Amino acid sequence: MMAYMNPGPHYSVNALALSGPSVDLMHQAVPYPSAPRKQRRERTTFTRSQLEELEALFAKTQYPDVYAREEVALKINLPESRVQVWFKNRRAKCRQQRQQQKQQQQPPGGQAKARPAKRKAGTSPRPSTDVCPDPLGISDSYSPPLPGPSGSPTTAVATVSIWSPASESPLPEAQRAGLVASGPSLTSAPYAMTYAPASAFCSSPSAYGSPSSYFSGLDPYLSPMVPQLGGPALSPLSGPSVGPSLAQSPTSLSGQSYGAYSPVDSLEFKDPTGTWKFTYNPMDPLDYKDQSAWKFQIL
């Protein structure tokens, strides 16, 4: 009977010793046993002879290597770790002494450095960015050149030099007046198309007034536009458009034309069986010896 009264063996659950049927240790109110408190290391007290050895090595170098620390530790009968900690504390003490010396050398008012006064946003004049500046400075420094007289040679050079070769001289006033084509001369031969040399188009003023001019072949195509416009036809070669000034309004060009419109200028042929003959000019830059190549039959 006494065997049943004795408590059973101890069981360990999660490293906790349980005594038989008792489960009081598993209750929430019972805390787990805490780790033992780490003991504080005792402070090391250095003797005068030990301090002399350490100070002598510190005077040589503030960062001794492990071999120098072990050698000193053997002399003063201390572990190497204590020597390492002593050098660490000695360097910190040396830095603190240097900072105190710097503070003593500075004057009393030198510690508080005078800061520059901050400028207020409204006091300083700042350039306004509302208006974009002129990058080319046209509004201040540029002045347009004065327009020359209508009959000045410089204007003629600016007008005619675009179309004339570089080897030719500017046309005088008398020749510029001949550039304007007359109405009857352009409409006299509506079906004849003559190819003149390129030099005649640039230099010869008579080429624009003769039936064999460069633009005589364009007349049949330009004249039928007159009834559609409801007024006189516009002429690209009329009046002052080739003269001194090219800047004319469309209203000033509306009254200039080749001449009176005639039914002869239409595109319809009077004789459907007729042929169109292209007159060959020996001055043509295209060297075609066979003139029969310039004739064709309209079917």
Rank of each mutant, 00 (worst) to 15 (best):
Y67F: 05
Q106N: 08
F296V: 07
Y208N: 02
V72A: 00
M283Q: 03
A198G: 01
W294D: 00
S150G: 07
Q39R: 09
T61V: 06
D134G: 05
E70V: 11
G20F: 12
Q97G: 09
P147T: 05
P172C: 08
K93N: 15
G239C: 09
A35P: 05
P170M: 08
L18V: 03
A174N: 05
P197K: 04
R119E: 01
G209C: 04
M193I: 14
Y280V: 10
Y63I: 13
S252W: 14
A3L: 13
P184A: 06
H10V: 15
P205Q: 02
Q248I: 13
A260C: 11
A114I: 06
A189C: 09
V264L: 11
F201T: 00
K60V: 03
K75S: 10
P240H: 07
Q228Y: 14
A198W: 14
Q101M: 03
T273Y: 11
R48L: 11
G230Y: 15
L146W: 03
L267A: 00
Q248D: 06
S169Y: 07
T44Y: 14
D287S: 07
T279N: 00
K295H: 08
S19I: 15
P165H: 03
T123G: 10
T275A: 03
P79S: 10
T154E: 03
F87P: 15
A260G: 04
Q62P: 06
S185H: 05
A29W: 10
P165T: 03
H10W: 15
P170Y: 05
P244A: 08
P172A: 04
P170E: 05
L54D: 13
D134L: 08
Q256Y: 08
S167R: 10
P7G: 04
R126G: 02
Y261Q: 02
D219C: 15
Y280D: 00
P145H: 06
W163C: 01
A158Q: 01
K102F: 00
F278K: 01
M283R: 15
N6V: 14
S249E: 04
A166I: 11
Q97S: 04
E52V: 06
S141L: 04
L146H: 11
S223D: 05
Y258G: 04
A189Y: 08
Q39L: 10
V242H: 06
E52D: 06
A181S: 03
S216C: 09
E80P: 06
S150N: 04
P263Y: 10
T275E: 00
T279W: 11
P107R: 12
Y258S: 06
V66K: 02
E268A: 10
L218K: 06
P153F: 15
I138S: 07
R41P: 12
L146C: 02
P220H: 08
G183R: 08
S185W: 15
Q103I: 05
S210T: 07
V13K: 01
Q99V: 05
A189H: 03
A73E: 12
L246Y: 05
G239N: 07
